[in-house]
Design a protein around this nucleic acid. Sequence first.
DNA 1: AGTGAAATTTAGAATTATTCTAATTCCAGT
DNA 2: ACTGGAATTAGAATAATTCTAAATTTCACT
Lengths: 130, 130
Amino acid sequence: MKRQFSTEQASLPKLTKQREAVLTVVRTNDAHLTASEIYALAGAKLPGISYATVYNSLRFLTEAGLINEITFGAGASRFDRRIDRHDHAICTACGTLADFEVEEISGLMQMAARRSKFKAESLHLTLYGL
Amino acid sequence: MKRQFSTEQASLPKLTKQREAVLTVVRTNDAHLTASEIYALAGAKLPGISYATVYNSLRFLTEAGLINEITFGAGASRFDRRIDRHDHAICTACGTLADFEVEEISGLMQMAARRSKFKAESLHLTLYGL
DNA sequence: AGTGAAATTTAGAATTATTCTAATTCCAGT
DNA sequence: ACTGGAATTAGAATAATTCTAAATTTCACT
């Protein structure tokens, strides 16, 4: 009988202590940290962790679906503990990034998919304002 | 009497030949060029134009509302001759960026504005797919 | 427990995109 | 022509991220 991985959340293949430290940082902070902020915080818990490892871990965790990467406007990527679909509002003056919800999106996504030649995977809406 | 620049759009303060070259490149190409592509193309018309000037011109033209900057996902900003509101679809596999329209957005924008604490300026929707 | 292969981490170099600096040049208005 | 402010230039500087090569850890299998 094959060894079973109980999907997603439960058993995480290769969750090293570095990756775990990075995950903990993202999860215990109020979202939207940049890689270098995460590097600094993870370094406090795990002195000596390198930048490359933080980036590798962030990619690994993102691909594993445990965290989410947001790339908005110019500048550094940010990482979010929220993995459910939601949207963002960005202040055009100060750059603040806030979460908000637009439930109507699911309907829009089908419409959008029909309209483009794309097989839709996800839809993200960004509001710019003050 | 003021010196008049006879350019297509109404009154353009300070449309130097460098800025005009950059504008022409963006307008005569099928959209979505990166700054370095624009630098290369503008350099063909105006040998010696510098990177800084291309960036300065792109910012100037963007602020003047003559072109539009799109920053999607990771990577370089792209510049678009289209200045009307529209949305983008990005291929998660190959990175292709395509335009498409979602007219329903204007209604959504008001809803979104109400829901966030933002004074809405614009709303941009990004579809990820294949 | 011992071994080797594979995966991971590390430090630092390299890359890419963009901005900054300081010197020079260009113009519109006297 | 002269002048001051804006624009341009070359190249250095910065920031974010990825790459490289070596060292280390992990893990399945003896």
